[in-house]
Design a protein around this nucleic acid. Structure first.
Length: 364
DNA sequence: AATGCGGGGAC
DNA sequence: GTCCCAGCATT
């Protein structure tokens, strides 16, 4: 197509949103914004960009933070390995690369948490290197305009779209081209109800001319969602303490804190709770403590129906069981007053917002 | 080549 | 309910 790049950049200059990371090319801030925006909408990520830039004014400040502090700031944004990789890369740049952010695509791509997309974005925006970005927006825009039905979640598809984007990019204005094609996909060539009638490319757009806008891009993979049943044990001691563990093993929420967890094959009822939980080991000061040996005063199920918490691949059925204890009896406890300092999954954070432990602390 | 990894918003 | 978001790492 004649002048694809010119038309696209022209559209961008007239229609772009003003975003906090536009009009700057500080690699620290561009990198930070790109990590935050991986699989994340601008509206969702923007508050986190402000939180991080206010907490850490440069990459050394981020490097010097504790990982738990980084995770706490990241709380609620999801895909928490991004936060751990962000911190690891900050330390790498600050202390192994002498504080100098890598300035070429190939060097940037070696950083933890940085793949083809992010390396291309930073290299073009910060260092004018003409490497084309390919994100979800680019797949959609190019598949529609050029009528490409190669599945975007296949190896041939990834290669084909990357090559096409690289062929189209304006080498003299790579930063604007890359941001333009993404902005165009985000606000004009949207997944649903794109603005085709006043699109600058509608005369050339293969998908529009053939009525196939809703057929492109093509994706072959279908995700199947697994149901899981979580029973959180919300211990409450007479001293106003509870038990909180940091999740370390593989799986969701690595690095975050949560309550002792009894996972079951199906929804757990009050009648079956005691028997199911009796052998569960709870983190102790020195060694794990078996639930059956705890001085339980009372068990209160907070709500009859489980809270439904949806992840991309999992549907969690979450119940919170409040368990009053006469004393801490060897358990590794933390004070409820310190709870806000721990990074916890969204479902726990949301539950605790409407929960007052003081209502359950025994008096007298 | 497949799979796992969060959470939220649009429809 | 479904789909997708300025993707990446691991197997």
């Amino acid at each position: 197509m004649l002048n694809f790049s010119n038309k696209l950049i022209n559209w961008y200059l007239q229609n772009k949103r003003e975003l906090p990371w536009r009009q700057i090319n500080d690699p620290y801030r561009i990198w930070l914004s790109e990590i935050i925006l991986q699989q994340t909408r601008v509206e969702q990520g923007t508050p986190y960009y402000f939180k991080f830039t206010e907490a850490f004014s440069d990459i050394k400040a981020l490097a010097d933070a504790h990982e738990d502090e980084v995770l706490k700031l990241w709380q609620g944004l999801g895909y928490y390995s991004r936060a751990r990789n962000l911190h690891a890369t900050a330390k790498k740049v600050a202390y192994e690369l002498d504080g100098k952010f890598p300035d070429t695509y190939s060097e940037i791509k070696k950083l933890k948490g940085v793949g083809d997309y992010t390396a291309s974005a930073i290299a073009s925006i910060c260092f004018d290197e003409a490497t084309a970005v390919v994100d979800g927006n680019v797949y959609r825009v190019l598949s529609r305009i050029f009528g490409i039905d190669t599945p975007i979640d296949s190896t041939p598809g990834k290669k084909e779209f990357k090559a096409l984007a690289q062929n189209l990019i304006d080498a003299d204005d790579a930063a604007n081209f890359n941001q333009a094609i993404m902005e165009f996909g985000a606000t004009q060539c949207k997944p649903k109800n794109p603005y085709c009638l006043h699109c600058p490319f509608n005369e050339d757009c293969v998908a529009f001319q053939h009525g196939k806008i809703d057929k492109l891009p093509v994706k072959k993979g279908k995700i199947k969602v697994k149901n899981r049943f979580f029973n959180y044990l919300l211990f409450i001691t007479t001293e106003g303490e509870t038990v909180l563990n940091q999740r370390e093993d593989k799986g969701i929420w690595r690095g975050l804190f949560d309550f002792p967890l009894l996972e079951t094959e199906a929804d757990l009822t009050k009648e079956n709770f005691r028997d199911s939980v009796k052998d569960l080991k709870i983190t102790g000061e020195t060694k794990p403590v078996v639930f059956a040996e705890l001085p339980v005063i009372d068990i209160i199920l907070q709500q009859q129906d489980p809270i439904i918490h949806k992840l991309s691949h999992q549907k969690l059925h979450v119940k919170f069981w409040v368990i009053k204890l006469k004393n801490k009896s060897g358990l590794k406890t933390v004070s409820f007053d310190d709870f806000e300092n721990y990074a916890v999954p969204r479902v726990i954070d949301r539950f605790m917002e409407g929960f007052d432990y003081k209502c359950f602390v025994s008096v007298g």
